[in-house]
Nucleic acid binder design. Structure first.
Length: 220
DNA sequence: GGTGCTTGCTAGATTGACAG
DNA sequence: CTGTCAATCTAGCAAGCACC
């Protein structure tokens, strides 16, 4: 069982679950630590603040909430949010017309940048909230091709293309001026060695080669 | 005189501890 | 489980001070 699953399997009685749900919902709504007195006024069960504090202490022991400072209320931890989403959140099924619309708009877009913008727009439209959509981290992407283009002076434009279609440009400063032929040769070597490898692995391989070359030079 | 910063005071909210 | 109490913290406000 992984860590999240273990945390999500925490045993809570009905009252503790109800208090945790009320606290998370209150915190999401107001963005401020929630105290026992506030909770006692807002939830349907007539519990005194002292009783709520005892339950909150238990929830804190379980790592589901914590107090940012001594006299503040409590706020949910990442584990508290996880449990809230897995077990306490009531989600209405999405209407089929919305599902159709999402499928239609997302499957018709192939440009990664436009796809991101479309996904963000759809999410914002359906939830009536601000939304942020991000692409997977580049270290998880796979290298398709690398190109070097000589610029004026000792500068080179590096164009990196990943297999998911993302293109990144960087200008690097070199210690001397390189000709176009040298750069093509370098790019060919790089693509031959590292094409179709994850960027994180490319980085690891390069670092390993640098260390290996340094040791070889020292030995010589 | 106007503005911005610091300091001190007060009210309100929260906590843990304890007695019933 | 509840009510109470002392301690603690934050926010808001006013006063004092320095600077322009």
């Amino acid at each position: 069982m992984d860590n999240d699953a273990r945390k999500s399997a925490v045993k809570l009685n009905d009252r503790a679950e109800m208090l945790l749900r009320a606290l998370v919902e209150k915190y999401i709504k107001e963005g401020q630590p929630v105290g026992s007195r506030t909770l006692s006024k807002s939830i349907e069960l007539s519990l005194s603040p002292a009783t709520i504090r005892n339950v909150m202490a238990d929830l804190e022991d379980l790592g589901l909430i914590h107090a940012p400072h001594t006299s503040a209320g409590r706020i949910p931890t990442a584990q508290g949010y996880r449990l809230f989403v897995d077990r306490l959140l009531r989600v209405e099924p999405m209407e089929s017309r919305f599902i159709d619309e999402i499928e239609q708009e997302l499957t018709s877009e192939v440009d990664p940048d436009k796809l991101t913008a479309t996904a963000s727009d759809l999410l914002s439209r359906f939830t009536h909230l601000a939304s942020v959509v991000v692409m997977p981290a580049q270290s998880e992407a796979t290298l398709h091709q690398l190109e070097y283009l000589p610029l004026s002076g000792e500068r080179v434009l590096v164009i990196l293309v990943t297999e998911n279609g993302r293109v990144q440009n960087r200008v690097i400063h070199t210690d001397k001026e390189y000709g176009a032929a040298e750069l093509v040769e370098a790019a060919n070597y790089f693509n031959e060695r590292f094409s179709h490898l994850p960027l994180s692995e490319v980085k690891r391989e390069i670092m390993r080669e640098i260390v290996s070359d340094r040791e070889e030079m020292n030995r010589l």
